[in-house]
Design a protein around this nucleic acid. Structure first.
Length: 369
RNA sequence: GCGAAAUUGGUGAAGUGGUUAACACGGCGGAUUGUGGUUCCGUUAUGCAAGAGUUCGAUCCUCUUAUUUCGCC
């Protein structure tokens, strides 16, 4: 069975929307933040801990699992859910972004992308068809089309050529997609150009996907540009399908995305900054390594309901991070993911109450920097 | 008691008679957006044991003192 999206409420003063997404592995409300579990695990966390955060769905990655342990291993294990002992919804990224972010030397041709493995330098060739076939075997609930993430800035001619190619790649992926229990999302590219975003959105929607995502953001552009990239694309997306903004996880960006009609977000930020000693709070991001927390025996946030805040002090977590103890990164990851999921919970409430813009103003007022 | 060697920041240490005393670790601060678990970037000795001398100029050469280490009575 494919996923089913139900739009339950539209916010009066913005494009914000509240909905529910039903999958074979459970349902979740949107807007939702999805933690990233690249290598079939959200770094440092167990499936039980992930569920406690009420995040609804997690990500995993085609490129990384293709290289290690190989999609056949996952398939023989009974699919990704069984392999990693997680029975909630899972979305797999296609590998398009990894080609952009990891490969040093890459050669993008019509057929696909030639590049070198980041593990051993072996020559690889990833195509739209292969990406989909791998994802079919991984058996995630939602697969992503294989796309090219256009760098920023990109000149118009390059962006146009790339965007048109990504549309052709989307068609090719759709044609080989076989897994009836797996949904497939198309990806809107187009760089920073309004007409290319329009072209990409319209053509991708014509192909008919189970959901649509906006890619090519948070690649170095300023926030104003990023928000306009969203605006350019969203207006051409159908209301009855979920919309996913890829790779965005700054609290303020999630709020701006929701206001613009986005339903799903994923980002490595909460877990990565956690491992480096940072925590999200209502007053902004804090660096737990700072001297002022050495003897701060309060929790990160008084009113946070996460396991970390209910049980540990800043002083102790600081000690763990400074001592390079893994538990420090674990505890901060738990808090940071829960922070973003709670943010989406509050955004859902704000949509229901039609006070999303007011919520944003209040949030910004407290959130330093 | 005699002789020898040594003394550079929080630590381990490089170095030179001539503007800002290398590097590493540690400390402090910052970054991080479809992962970097061990990452990246800043910053951190107005001073080379103390005092005196030689010199245009000394952390570097000379002397005295202090401390440390190693030999010998």
């Amino acid at each position: 069975m494919k996923i089913k999206y139900e739009l339950l409420k539209k916010e009066q003063n913005s494009k914000g929307r509240y909905g529910i997404l039903k999958t074979n592995h459970g349902n979740f409300e949107t807007p939702m933040f999805m933690p990233v579990g690249t290598l079939a695990n959200v770094k440092t966390l167990t499936p039980e801990e992930i569920k406690d955060m009420k995040c609804g769905i997690i990500l995993s990655n085609t490129y990384h699992l293709w290289l290690r342990p190989g999609e056949d291993v996952v398939s023989h294990a009974g699919g990704l859910h069984k392999f990693m002992n997680y029975d909630g919804p899972i979305l797999t990224d296609s590998g398009g972004f990894q080609v952009f972010s990891l490969a040093k030397k890459k050669d993008i041709v019509e057929e696909g992308v030639k590049f070198k493995s980041h593990i051993d330098g072996k020559s690889l060739f990833l195509t739209p068809e292969l990406s989909i076939q791998i994802q079919n075997k991984l058996d995630s609930d939602i697969a992503m089309s294989f796309d090219e993430c256009i760098p920023y800035p990109a000149d118009y001619e390059y962006a146009k050529k790339s965007t048109e190619r990504t549309i052709r790649w989307a068609k090719r992926g759709l044609d080989v997609h076989k897994n009836e229990n797996q949904s497939l999302f198309g990806i809107v590219q187009g760089g920073e150009y309004e007409d290319l975003r329009k072209l990409s959105a319209e053509e991708t929607v014509k192909l008919g996907f189970d959901g649509y995502s906006i890619g090519g953001t948070s690649v170095g552009e300023d926030k104003k540009t990023m928000y306009s990239m969203i605006d350019y694309a969203v207006k051409y997306l159908p209301e009855d399908k979920p919309r996913y903004l890829m790779g965005v996880g700054e609290p303020i960006d999630i709020i701006e995305g929701v206001i613009r009609g986005i339903d799903m977000f994923d980002c490595v930020l909460p877990t990565r900054i956690a491992r480096h000693g940072n925590a999200f709070t209502r007053n902004g991001k804090i660096n737990i390594k700072n001297l002022k927390y050495k003897e701060d025996f309060t929790s990160i946030e008084d009113d946070c309901d996460c396991y970390t805040c209910k049980n540990y002090t800043k002083s102790y977590i600081r000690h763990l991070i400074v001592s390079n103890e893994m538990l420090g990164g674990r505890l901060l990851s738990i808090h940071n993911i829960r922070f973003l999921v709670r943010l989406t919970e509050e955004l859902r409430e704000a949509i229901k109450n039609d006070n999303l813009l007011e919520y944003k103003e209040n949030f910004i007022k407290n959130y330093k920097k």
